[in-house]
Protein backbone atom coordinates (compact mmCIF):
# COMPACT_ATOMS: atom_id res chain seq x y z
CA UNK A 1 0.00 0.00 0.00
CA UNK A 2 2.80 2.39 0.89
CA UNK A 3 4.48 1.75 -2.44
CA UNK A 4 1.24 2.56 -4.25
CA UNK A 5 0.78 5.80 -2.31
CA UNK A 6 4.41 6.69 -2.98
CA UNK A 7 3.79 6.11 -6.70
CA UNK A 8 0.76 8.37 -6.57
CA UNK A 9 2.74 11.04 -4.71
CA UNK A 10 5.50 10.90 -7.33
CA UNK A 11 2.99 11.20 -10.17
CA UNK A 12 1.21 14.13 -8.47
CA UNK A 13 4.55 15.86 -7.92
CA UNK A 14 5.46 15.39 -11.59
CA UNK A 15 2.07 16.74 -12.70
CA UNK A 16 2.40 19.80 -10.45
CA UNK A 17 5.95 20.50 -11.58
CA UNK A 18 5.20 20.09 -15.29
CA UNK A 19 1.98 22.12 -15.13
CA UNK A 20 3.75 24.96 -13.33
CA UNK A 21 6.66 24.90 -15.77
CA UNK A 22 4.49 24.75 -18.89
CA UNK A 23 1.97 27.37 -17.77
CA UNK A 24 4.80 29.79 -16.93
CA UNK A 25 6.46 28.93 -20.20
CA UNK A 26 3.21 29.56 -22.10
CA UNK A 27 2.82 32.98 -20.46
CA UNK A 28 6.40 33.93 -21.32
CA UNK A 29 6.01 32.52 -24.82
CA UNK A 30 3.36 35.21 -25.40
CA UNK A 31 5.88 37.78 -24.22
CA UNK A 32 8.69 36.27 -26.31
CA UNK A 33 6.41 36.28 -29.34
CA UNK A 34 5.56 39.96 -28.91
CA UNK A 35 9.24 40.84 -28.45
CA UNK A 36 10.46 38.76 -31.40
CA UNK A 37 7.70 40.01 -33.69
CA UNK A 38 8.62 43.54 -32.68
CA UNK A 39 12.24 42.91 -33.64
CA UNK A 40 11.18 41.36 -36.94
CA UNK A 41 9.08 44.45 -37.65
CA UNK A 42 11.75 46.89 -36.37
CA UNK A 43 9.78 47.98 -33.28
CA UNK A 44 10.66 47.79 -29.58
CA UNK A 45 7.81 45.63 -28.28
CA UNK A 46 6.49 45.61 -24.69
CA UNK A 47 9.09 47.31 -22.44
CA UNK A 48 7.11 49.25 -19.82
CA UNK A 49 6.07 46.74 -17.11
CA UNK A 50 9.06 45.71 -15.01
CA UNK A 51 12.67 45.51 -16.16
CA UNK A 52 12.80 45.00 -19.97
CA UNK A 53 9.03 44.49 -19.82
CA UNK A 54 9.48 41.11 -18.14
CA UNK A 55 6.41 41.49 -15.91
CA UNK A 56 4.12 42.03 -18.92
CA UNK A 57 2.59 38.48 -18.73
CA UNK A 58 1.60 39.15 -15.09
CA UNK A 59 -0.03 42.45 -16.06
CA UNK A 60 -1.87 40.69 -18.92
CA UNK A 61 -3.10 38.01 -16.52
CA UNK A 62 -4.45 40.59 -14.04
CA UNK A 63 -6.16 42.43 -16.90
CA UNK A 64 -7.80 39.25 -18.19
CA UNK A 65 -8.93 38.13 -14.72
CA UNK A 66 -10.55 41.47 -13.87
CA UNK A 67 -12.37 41.94 -17.19
CA UNK A 68 -16.13 41.48 -17.41
CA UNK A 69 -17.24 37.94 -18.19
CA UNK A 70 -19.48 38.75 -21.11
CA UNK A 71 -21.98 36.54 -22.91
CA UNK A 72 -23.55 37.75 -26.18
CA UNK A 73 -27.34 37.84 -26.58
CA UNK A 74 -28.68 34.61 -28.07
CA UNK A 75 -25.53 32.65 -27.33
CA UNK A 76 -25.92 29.03 -26.31
CA UNK A 77 -25.18 29.43 -22.58
CA UNK A 78 -23.59 26.17 -21.52
CA UNK A 79 -21.68 25.43 -24.70
CA UNK A 80 -20.42 29.01 -24.77
CA UNK A 81 -19.15 28.65 -21.21
CA UNK A 82 -17.61 25.19 -21.73
CA UNK A 83 -15.92 25.69 -25.11
CA UNK A 84 -12.73 27.44 -23.81
CA UNK A 85 -12.15 24.51 -21.46
CA UNK A 86 -12.74 22.06 -24.32
CA UNK A 87 -10.05 23.90 -26.26
CA UNK A 88 -7.46 24.06 -23.45
CA UNK A 89 -7.92 20.66 -21.76
CA UNK A 90 -6.72 18.40 -24.65
CA UNK A 91 -3.53 20.46 -24.93
CA UNK A 92 -2.89 20.18 -21.19
CA UNK A 93 -3.73 16.46 -21.17
CA UNK A 94 -1.25 15.75 -23.95
CA UNK A 95 1.47 16.92 -21.56
CA UNK A 96 0.97 13.68 -19.64
CA UNK A 97 2.56 11.52 -22.33
CA UNK A 98 5.56 13.71 -23.24
CA UNK A 99 8.91 12.30 -22.01
CA UNK A 100 10.68 15.50 -20.98
CA UNK A 101 13.96 14.10 -19.66
CA UNK A 102 16.00 10.98 -19.01
CA UNK A 103 15.01 8.87 -15.98
CA UNK A 104 16.67 10.25 -12.84
CA UNK A 105 17.50 8.52 -9.56
CA UNK A 106 16.22 10.34 -6.47
CA UNK A 107 17.11 8.75 -3.09
CA UNK A 108 17.53 5.32 -4.64
CA UNK A 109 14.26 5.40 -6.60
CA UNK A 110 14.32 5.60 -10.36
CA UNK A 111 11.88 8.26 -11.50
CA UNK A 112 10.99 8.56 -15.18
CA UNK A 113 10.52 12.15 -16.29
CA UNK A 114 7.22 11.44 -17.98
CA UNK A 115 3.84 11.38 -16.24
CA UNK A 116 2.55 8.20 -17.87
CA UNK A 117 4.33 5.93 -20.35
CA UNK A 118 1.42 4.30 -22.16
CA UNK A 119 1.79 1.44 -24.62
CA UNK A 120 -0.47 3.42 -26.94
CA UNK A 121 1.17 6.79 -26.23
CA UNK A 122 1.28 7.94 -29.84
CA UNK A 123 -2.37 6.99 -30.38
CA UNK A 124 -3.34 8.93 -27.25
CA UNK A 125 -1.67 12.00 -28.76
CA UNK A 126 -3.66 11.55 -32.00
CA UNK A 127 -6.88 11.00 -30.02
CA UNK A 128 -6.39 14.13 -27.92
CA UNK A 129 -5.49 16.26 -30.92
CA UNK A 130 -8.63 15.08 -32.70
CA UNK A 131 -10.70 16.10 -29.65
CA UNK A 132 -9.21 19.61 -29.64
CA UNK A 133 -11.45 20.45 -32.62
CA UNK A 134 -14.54 20.68 -30.40
CA UNK A 135 -13.42 23.78 -28.50
CA UNK A 136 -12.91 25.72 -31.73
CA UNK A 137 -16.06 24.45 -33.42
CA UNK A 138 -18.47 24.75 -30.50
CA UNK A 139 -17.04 28.03 -29.22
CA UNK A 140 -17.62 29.74 -32.55
CA UNK A 141 -21.01 28.15 -33.07
CA UNK A 142 -22.31 28.99 -29.59
CA UNK A 143 -21.31 32.67 -29.88
CA UNK A 144 -24.28 33.45 -32.17
CA UNK A 145 -22.12 35.65 -34.40
CA UNK A 146 -21.46 35.28 -38.11
CA UNK A 147 -17.73 35.98 -37.81
CA UNK A 148 -17.31 33.45 -35.03
CA UNK A 149 -19.34 30.85 -36.96
CA UNK A 150 -17.32 31.36 -40.14
CA UNK A 151 -14.12 31.10 -38.13
CA UNK A 152 -15.17 27.89 -36.45
CA UNK A 153 -16.32 26.28 -39.73
CA UNK A 154 -12.95 27.12 -41.26
CA UNK A 155 -11.21 25.83 -38.13
CA UNK A 156 -13.11 22.55 -38.29
CA UNK A 157 -12.24 21.96 -41.93
CA UNK A 158 -8.60 22.88 -41.37
CA UNK A 159 -8.09 20.76 -38.26
CA UNK A 160 -9.72 17.66 -39.77
CA UNK A 161 -7.65 17.98 -42.95
CA UNK A 162 -4.29 18.43 -41.28
CA UNK A 163 -4.90 15.79 -38.62
CA UNK A 164 -4.82 13.25 -41.42
CA UNK A 165 -1.41 14.26 -42.77
CA UNK A 166 -0.09 14.59 -39.20
CA UNK A 167 -1.18 11.05 -38.32
CA UNK A 168 0.19 9.64 -41.58
CA UNK A 169 3.54 11.40 -41.14
CA UNK A 170 3.95 9.60 -37.79
CA UNK A 171 3.49 6.11 -39.28
CA UNK A 172 7.15 5.88 -40.48
CA UNK A 173 8.28 6.85 -36.95
CA UNK A 174 6.32 3.91 -35.54
CA UNK A 175 7.71 1.65 -38.28
CA UNK A 176 11.28 2.62 -37.37
CA UNK A 177 10.84 2.48 -33.60
CA UNK A 178 8.55 -0.59 -33.77
CA UNK A 179 6.52 0.81 -30.91
CA UNK A 180 3.78 3.29 -30.04
CA UNK A 181 5.38 3.84 -26.64
CA UNK A 182 6.98 7.28 -26.53
CA UNK A 183 9.85 6.21 -24.24
CA UNK A 184 10.76 3.46 -26.73
CA UNK A 185 10.52 5.88 -29.66
CA UNK A 186 12.99 8.15 -27.82
CA UNK A 187 15.33 5.26 -26.98
CA UNK A 188 15.27 4.01 -30.58
CA UNK A 189 16.87 7.33 -31.56
CA UNK A 190 19.83 7.03 -29.19
CA UNK A 191 22.30 6.48 -32.04
CA UNK A 192 20.69 8.47 -34.82
CA UNK A 193 17.75 10.87 -34.80
CA UNK A 194 14.79 9.91 -36.98
CA UNK A 195 15.00 13.21 -38.86
CA UNK A 196 18.02 11.71 -40.65
CA UNK A 197 15.98 8.75 -41.94
CA UNK A 198 12.72 10.64 -42.35
CA UNK A 199 13.32 14.25 -43.44
CA UNK A 200 10.13 14.26 -45.52
CA UNK A 201 8.04 12.95 -42.63
CA UNK A 202 9.51 15.63 -40.41
CA UNK A 203 8.59 18.40 -42.84
CA UNK A 204 5.04 17.06 -43.24
CA UNK A 205 4.69 16.80 -39.45
CA UNK A 206 6.04 20.32 -38.95
CA UNK A 207 3.64 21.86 -41.48
CA UNK A 208 0.74 19.88 -40.00
CA UNK A 209 1.43 20.96 -36.42
CA UNK A 210 1.66 24.57 -37.58
CA UNK A 211 -1.84 24.10 -38.98
CA UNK A 212 -3.00 22.31 -35.80
CA UNK A 213 -1.81 25.30 -33.75
CA UNK A 214 -3.85 27.57 -36.09
CA UNK A 215 -0.83 29.83 -36.54
CA UNK A 216 0.27 31.96 -39.47
CA UNK A 217 0.42 30.90 -42.33
CA UNK A 218 -2.52 28.66 -41.31
CA UNK A 219 -4.49 31.11 -39.18
CA UNK A 220 -7.61 31.35 -41.36
CA UNK A 221 -9.89 30.35 -38.42
CA UNK A 222 -8.80 33.57 -36.69
CA UNK A 223 -7.81 35.80 -39.65
CA UNK A 224 -8.00 39.22 -37.97
CA UNK A 225 -8.18 41.02 -41.30
CA UNK A 226 -11.43 39.41 -42.37
CA UNK A 227 -13.10 37.73 -39.36
CA UNK A 228 -12.34 40.16 -36.46
CA UNK A 229 -10.85 37.35 -34.34
CA UNK A 230 -12.53 34.28 -35.82
CA UNK A 231 -13.97 31.69 -33.49
CA UNK A 232 -13.13 33.58 -30.27
CA UNK A 233 -14.46 36.97 -31.41
CA UNK A 234 -17.20 37.09 -28.74
CA UNK A 235 -15.08 35.89 -25.82
CA UNK A 236 -13.72 38.23 -23.19
CA UNK A 237 -11.69 38.05 -20.00
CA UNK A 238 -10.31 34.74 -18.82
CA UNK A 239 -12.48 32.69 -21.18
CA UNK A 240 -10.63 34.31 -24.06
CA UNK A 241 -7.47 33.82 -21.98
CA UNK A 242 -8.11 30.08 -21.85
CA UNK A 243 -8.32 29.87 -25.66
CA UNK A 244 -5.15 31.92 -25.83
CA UNK A 245 -3.18 29.99 -23.20
CA UNK A 246 -4.39 26.70 -24.71
CA UNK A 247 -2.88 27.76 -28.02
CA UNK A 248 0.50 28.52 -26.45
CA UNK A 249 0.50 25.34 -24.37
CA UNK A 250 -0.21 23.57 -27.64
CA UNK A 251 2.92 25.12 -29.15
CA UNK A 252 5.02 23.86 -26.22
CA UNK A 253 3.44 20.39 -26.31
CA UNK A 254 3.64 19.98 -30.08
CA UNK A 255 7.21 21.27 -30.10
CA UNK A 256 8.04 18.72 -27.42
CA UNK A 257 6.37 15.94 -29.40
CA UNK A 258 8.13 16.94 -32.61
CA UNK A 259 11.41 16.73 -30.68
CA UNK A 260 10.36 13.33 -29.28
CA UNK A 261 9.39 11.86 -32.65
CA UNK A 262 12.13 13.25 -34.89
CA UNK A 263 14.91 14.93 -32.91
CA UNK A 264 15.71 12.19 -30.41
CA UNK A 265 13.70 13.59 -27.47
CA UNK A 266 16.10 14.19 -24.59
CA UNK A 267 19.06 12.47 -26.32
CA UNK A 268 22.04 14.60 -27.24
CA UNK A 269 25.76 14.83 -26.57
CA UNK A 270 27.52 16.64 -23.67
CA UNK A 271 24.66 18.65 -22.15
CA UNK A 272 22.22 17.07 -19.63
CA UNK A 273 19.00 15.53 -21.09
CA UNK A 274 16.66 18.14 -19.57
CA UNK A 275 18.61 20.94 -21.28
CA UNK A 276 18.53 19.10 -24.59
CA UNK A 277 14.79 18.49 -24.48
CA UNK A 278 13.75 21.98 -23.46
CA UNK A 279 16.32 23.47 -25.83
CA UNK A 280 14.61 21.65 -28.69
CA UNK A 281 11.20 22.87 -27.49
CA UNK A 282 12.48 26.46 -27.43
CA UNK A 283 13.95 26.01 -30.90
CA UNK A 284 10.53 24.92 -32.21
CA UNK A 285 8.79 27.81 -30.44
CA UNK A 286 11.30 30.23 -31.95
CA UNK A 287 10.78 28.71 -35.39
CA UNK A 288 6.98 29.11 -35.04
CA UNK A 289 7.32 32.77 -34.06
CA UNK A 290 9.84 33.39 -36.83
CA UNK A 291 7.49 31.85 -39.39
CA UNK A 292 4.68 34.06 -38.06
CA UNK A 293 6.83 37.12 -38.60
CA UNK A 294 7.75 36.08 -42.14
CA UNK A 295 4.88 34.37 -43.93
CA UNK A 296 1.60 35.70 -45.36
CA UNK A 297 -1.68 33.91 -44.69
CA UNK A 298 -2.82 31.14 -47.04
CA UNK A 299 -6.18 31.41 -48.77
CA UNK A 300 -8.81 28.78 -47.88
CA UNK A 301 -8.49 26.91 -51.21
CA UNK A 302 -4.67 26.99 -51.04
CA UNK A 303 -4.87 25.55 -47.53
CA UNK A 304 -7.14 22.70 -48.62
CA UNK A 305 -5.03 22.07 -51.70
CA UNK A 306 -1.83 21.83 -49.64
CA UNK A 307 -3.38 19.51 -47.09
CA UNK A 308 -5.26 17.08 -49.32
CA UNK A 309 -3.36 17.15 -52.61
CA UNK A 310 0.23 17.62 -51.44
CA UNK A 311 0.87 16.58 -47.83
CA UNK A 312 -1.44 13.57 -47.55
CA UNK A 313 -0.32 11.84 -50.81
CA UNK A 314 3.34 12.59 -49.98
CA UNK A 315 2.88 11.05 -46.52
CA UNK A 316 1.28 7.94 -48.07
CA UNK A 317 4.12 7.52 -50.59
CA UNK A 318 6.60 8.03 -47.77
CA UNK A 319 5.01 5.21 -45.78
CA UNK A 320 5.27 2.87 -48.79
CA UNK A 321 8.91 3.78 -49.43
CA UNK A 322 9.78 3.37 -45.75
CA UNK A 323 8.11 -0.04 -45.68
CA UNK A 324 9.95 -1.10 -48.84
CA UNK A 325 13.27 0.11 -47.40
CA UNK A 326 12.69 -1.70 -44.09
CA UNK A 327 11.89 -4.96 -45.90
CA UNK A 328 14.88 -4.67 -48.25
CA UNK A 329 17.27 -3.89 -45.40
CA UNK A 330 16.54 -7.12 -43.52
Amino acid sequence: MSIISLDIAVILAKIALLLFAVLTLAAYLVFAERKLLAWVQDRKGPNRVGPLGLLQPLADLIKLLTKEDFRPLGADKWIFYLAPAMAAIPAIMTLAIVPFGAPVTIMGFEVTLQIVDLNIGLLVFLALSSIAVYGVALGGWASNSKYALLGSIRGLAQLISYELSMGLSLVPVVMLARSFKLSEIVNAQEGCWFIVYQPLSFIIFLVSILAECKRIPFDIPEAEGELVAGFHTEYSGMRFGLFFVGEYINIVVLGGLAATFFLGGWHGPLLPPLVWFWGKVFAFAFLFIWIRGTMPRLRYDQLMHLGWKVLTPLALVNILVTGWWLVMRV
Binding site: V124, A127, S130, I131, V133, Y134, A137, L138, A157, I160
Partner: peptide, 18 residues
Protein backbone atom coordinates in the same frame (compact mmCIF):
# COMPACT_ATOMS: atom_id res chain seq x y z
CA UNK B 1 -10.20 2.68 -26.67
CA UNK B 2 -7.82 4.90 -28.63
CA UNK B 3 -9.55 4.18 -31.95
CA UNK B 4 -12.96 4.80 -30.39
CA UNK B 5 -11.85 8.34 -29.55
CA UNK B 6 -9.84 8.97 -32.74
CA UNK B 7 -12.42 7.68 -35.19
CA UNK B 8 -15.83 8.12 -33.57
CA UNK B 9 -15.38 11.14 -31.29
CA UNK B 10 -12.63 12.79 -33.33
CA UNK B 11 -13.67 12.16 -36.92
CA UNK B 12 -17.25 10.93 -37.38
CA UNK B 13 -18.93 13.24 -34.87
CA UNK B 14 -16.79 16.19 -36.02
CA UNK B 15 -18.08 15.65 -39.56
CA UNK B 16 -21.66 15.50 -38.24
CA UNK B 17 -21.02 18.77 -36.39
CA UNK B 18 -19.55 20.30 -39.55
Amino acid sequence: AAFEVIIYAGAVMVLFLF
